[in-house]
Design a protein around this nucleic acid. Structure first.
Lengths: 233, 233
DNA sequence: GCCTCATCAGTTGTCTGATGACTGCGCAAT
DNA sequence: ATTGCGCAGTCATCAGACAACTGATGAGGC
């Protein structure tokens, strides 16, 4: 009985998207004209147009003025993180696992490819975090900056983009997430710096395997901390 | 003099998005009501509503019926693959590197967590590809299906989503990409089946390290094939 | 004093009808 | 055969009205 929850426009958009995905309308096909859609869904043109505006912004269709609306070959299934998903602790855990895979590889590539500039950038961030007081103030931000610098040093644009992508989740702003995060002690920070140093050294030495291992170790530790947190709650 | 190129709605949407990104309206703030926006941009309500529908679908704002439209904290810088990027061979290469990192991890997780059903699903796809004639007909599709099954077996939703995400690039439809792909010989298919078998066996045996290594080997091979192709062209 | 609930103003959601703008196609003129 | 024109189909935009929802205010009962 919760039909009021979703607006008509979004219902129509979802339905249309489904039909397109299902292949009812093939790529390149023209979908029914506005008037027909109005009749199909028993809604006004306003609603239909808003629904199509949504699909268009998602790249599922394109409108051609005076001609019609056509199904687009969608090359962007847009990997996106929704708030709800990011709110679930278990989802954050899974995201961390994904991140581990990517970053281990990034560390390996960085060891092979990092330029002098890349290394300097990584070292800069690392040095900043060596000051435990500064590190304690922005633990997540500095940690993230370190990892981002490595992703950049991998010379792989997608990895850098990927880190941008999950950044907002790693540095959570919502209270919910903060509450569910492990507490940060002085000892923990020291350990972090140590782990960072191992990664940095391996990359600087150009030892890809060692860099991968160090990164895996580092992320596994924080993954375990989260896991413990999860079973506690 | 290109004013006719973009629809009013998209112009308004872009402008509003810019203002939001720029911080004119802070997260949580209510943006001006529809009537005011109409006045600001000198457009009708239809246009404003379509623009807002776009922003909403992008997660930049949320509408609350009877209250207003509010700026969302957008946690999705939307990792998306654009057509142009996917067209560049070098970009495909980098995407493959990213994929390698994710899939190596997925294989390891699958070895630890795969259920009976998961294993059956992987084996089904593998068996299909064992018939070299069938494999030759849809080499990329079957290979992709195998990898997708493993990602699913990892028990990590994000990894499965990630594979969905890059699927369209791995199974390219555009002529451009096909032309730039390595040619597929009978020998190559046999080798693929062999590599797949190693991965499958390791996962079935629950040997995470072996699964990771097998997967890394498998993807490295195809990465090398692409690299060779790149220097040739 | 405090709680309950009806009412109201403000805002988004939906509907309707009309007009403008653009495209593709056929047809006529050359 | 080519060119140009007009027409029908379709999307884009406008204008106005009403419906539905929310949050705040204030009246009334306890």
């Amino acid at each position: 009985m919760r039909k009021r929850r979703d607006s008509l426009a979004s219902v129509v958009a979802k339905d249309l998207a489904e039909r397109i995905e299902r292949g009812d309308y093939a790529v390149g096909d023209k979908i029914p004209i506005e008037a027909q859609l109005c009749e199909m869904f028993n809604v006004s043109r306003t609603v239909v147009r808003e629904a199509i505006a949504t699909l268009r912004s998602e790249g599922l269709v394109t409108s051609r003025h005076g001609v019609g609306v056509f199904v687009e070959e969608r090359a962007n299934p847009a990997l996106s993180i929704t708030k709800e998903a990011a709110g679930e602790l278990s989802e954050v855990l899974e995201l961390l696992e994904l991140r581990l895979g990517v970053e281990v590889e990034a560390a390996g590539l960085a060891a092979r490819r990092a330029t002098e500039d890349d290394l300097r950038a990584i070292r800069d961030v690392f040095d900043k975090a060596c000051d435990l007081d500064a590190f304690a103030e922005q633990p997540r931000e500095l940690d993230y900056a370190f990892h981002l610098a490595i992703a950049r040093a991998s010379g792989n644009g997608w990895m850098a983009k990927f880190m941008d992508f999950i950044g907002p989740v790693i540095i959570p702003r919502s209270q919910l997430l903060h509450a569910s995060q492990p507490e940060i002690t002085r000892d923990y920070l020291r350990q972090m710096v140590d782990e960072h140093r191992r990664i940095l050294d391996a990359i600087a030495a150009g030892d890809a395997v060692a860099a991968q291992e160090a990164m895996r170790m580092h992320l596994s530790t924080s993954l375990d901390r989260y896991r413990k947190r999860l079973v506690e709650s």
